[in-house]
Structures are given as structure tokens and as C-alpha cells.
Amino acid sequence: MKICIYGAGAIGGYLAFALAEAGVDVSIVARGGHLEAIRQNGLRLRNGDQDRTVKLIATDEPERLGPQHYVIITLKAHSVPAVAERVTTLFNEQTAVVTAVNGLPWWYFYRHGGPLENTRLESVDPNGVQWRLFGPERAIGCVVYPAAEVEQPGVVRVIDGDRFALGEPSGESSERMLGLADALKAGGLKAPVKSRIRDDIWIKLWGNLSFNPVSALTTATLEEICRFSETRAVIRAMMVEARAVGEAIGVRFAIDVDKRIAGGEAVGAHKTSMLQDLERGRPMEIDALVSVVQEIARKVDIPTPIIDAVLGLIKLRAIKAGAYP
């Protein structure tokens, strides 16, 4: 089995390490100092008491790697269209593309079965680049639950979690998905197979949609924005609107709004990824986390006034910071 991790930062590095431990022929596409450190010293993973290093193929030229059984994309969503053509150099007819990316995936309405069947989402796939170049039939969904960081070039530290939920857009338990799940489990990860992966995607999106922009706008931690009554009210209103949008396209929410907010509060004094990106001057994941919900809301005629207001504010904040791609 050959697997390429495209975008081997913190989460990609964690996956690559686990797959290498499982004996998979795994390679990574990375760049900069992180790539050079992995080439010279291997990929080091720090996870609790574990501190180990694996050697693997690392490159910034995917064209040299040849066809893969799976390409796991761990880039931020807005970065993928620009490299889509290079990703296709890793394909043969059987290659699966695993979207381990925050937000709603570009293939969302493929084999959805509803009135929006095969609808392209402009906010996450401008001009349908991924739909056209990858082909939705290659897609396997993946919801990433762990928190990890690149502690220094070549070194990934796992903060919490080991679960990567997998699901086919059709809901079937395919051989290719089960094979990937087995490989991840062999590397010490949890890889539950979901027949309704979109439900899991929305539960995670629910938090990202609201916690991230509110945190970035206020420069406050998760704990602070959930405990301060006014920001908690904004977060709750955004989640209520998003739930209406999700339910309109068939999503089943297994928990209620207040329980989801309580889960965010329990994380504690943590800066969201959007706030971290703002502070570091990096492009912010606004479209895949927020704009896409507004886009779908327009298609199903669901009003989202609070989401709209927060989206406008965070877009301008990001533009002023040079962090809106």
C-alpha cells in the first residue's frame, strides 16, 4: 500500500508517523525548513511519554513519487486549489483522495441524494477546480479530531486525540475505505467508519464556524468566549442558524447547541486556529468554515443574519491583516 500525505504539517505529520509505524509505504509532500529537517533527521513525534523518530520519503516535488493508492490531503482548504494539478500527478485510475481538511469538503453534494445533488461549492472549490481535476468519485471523507502542532522543524507534538473518522460520500463500507481504516488502526490511531460522515463533518464545523471567528475578532480563548455571556450568545445564535441550514440538507445533529458550546468551553484557555493564524499573519480559514454555510443557506432559503454579520466582520479583519487569501 502506497500513501502520500500532501501537506505534512502537524496533522499530516501525525498521520505519516502512524502509517510508517504500521509498515505502510508512506511519503510526504512538505516544504521549507520542516521538509529539510525531516529529510536530514527523520520525522520526530512527541506524544505524551512517546518520543520517537521515523525515516520516510519527504519531498516538495510530488511528481517524483509516482502513483499512490491514497493521497491524504492535510492542507488548509484554501491552499488546495492552487496545487490541485500537482496532486493529480500522484493518481492512477484507482487512487483515492482523502480530505482531512477543516470545514465542508468540496465533494459534499456528490452522491448526496437530495435536491442539491452534485452542486459545486464555490466558496471551497472556486471554479470547480477540485471537482474537475480530482473527480468526486475518488473522494473519501475524513474528520480530524486530534490537536497537534509543529513544535519545531521536523518535530510534531500531539496535544490531544487520536481519532480520524472516515466515510464514503455514498455511505457504503467500501474496500478502499476499510483498507485505509485498517492501516490507520495498525499505526495506533482510531479510525471509525461512518455511514453518515456528513453528520460528523457538521458537528465539528458547528464549533469551527462560531468559535473561530468570534475568538479571532475578540482575541480571546475558547474558555473566555464561552463564559462571557455576550459572546456566548453570538456563538449560540450562529449555531442555531447553522443547525437550520444543516437540517435543511439532511444533517442529523446528535447533540444540542448548549452541549456543543460546553464542549468548547471545556477545552479551556486555548486559542483557536483562526486566532493563531491572525496573530502569525497566515491566511485564515474563513471560507471553508463560515462562507460555505452562508452559501448553502442561500441555496435553501434559510436566513442567517448573525452568521452574515460575523462573516463580514471577520473578512474585513482578515483583509486588514493581509490574512484573507
Rank of each mutant, 00 (worst) to 15 (best):
L133S: 01
G312L: 04
G264V: 09
V290Q: 06
R260Y: 06
A244Q: 13
D160S: 01
V234M: 08
G281R: 11
V26Y: 12
T53M: 10
F134A: 02
A186N: 09
L35R: 03
G141R: 11
G66T: 04
I72E: 13
A181P: 11
R31Q: 07
A183S: 15
R52C: 10
R232M: 12
L184R: 08
P62W: 13
D182C: 02
I57Q: 11
A244R: 13
H78A: 13
L45W: 08
L19M: 14
W106Q: 15
R52T: 12
P192E: 15
P62A: 09
K55F: 05
R46D: 08
V257Q: 00
A30L: 08
V156D: 10
G114L: 04
E117M: 11
R282Q: 15
A96H: 15
G42T: 12
I235M: 09
V267S: 06
D301E: 05
W106G: 15
P192C: 13
L45I: 12
D182N: 09
G48T: 01
F228M: 14
G9N: 06
R138G: 13
Y110E: 07
N41S: 10
T59N: 10
G179K: 12
F164S: 11
G161T: 01
L56P: 06
R227L: 14
L180N: 05
V71M: 00
A262T: 00
A266T: 02
A30T: 10
A96I: 10
L104F: 09
I57S: 07
E295Q: 04
E36C: 01
L316P: 00
V300A: 03
E168R: 03
V150C: 04
Y145F: 10
V98P: 13
Q40H: 06
M274R: 10
L43P: 12
G250H: 03
G312D: 03
Q94A: 15
A233P: 02
A262D: 09
L316D: 02
G263D: 08
S79P: 05
E122D: 14
V310F: 03
R64K: 15
A183Q: 15
G161N: 00
Y6M: 00
Y6Q: 00
G9S: 06
D25S: 13
D258I: 03
P136L: 04
F228Q: 14
I3V: 15
C226M: 05
K190G: 08
R298E: 10
K76A: 13
P169N: 03
Q130I: 11
P115F: 09
G281M: 13
Q276A: 12
S174N: 12
V144L: 13
S215K: 07
E61I: 12
A96N: 15
G135C: 02
A216T: 08
I201S: 07
F17R: 08
L316T: 04
P136N: 15
A186H: 04
P67A: 14
Y145W: 12
C142M: 09
H78I: 14
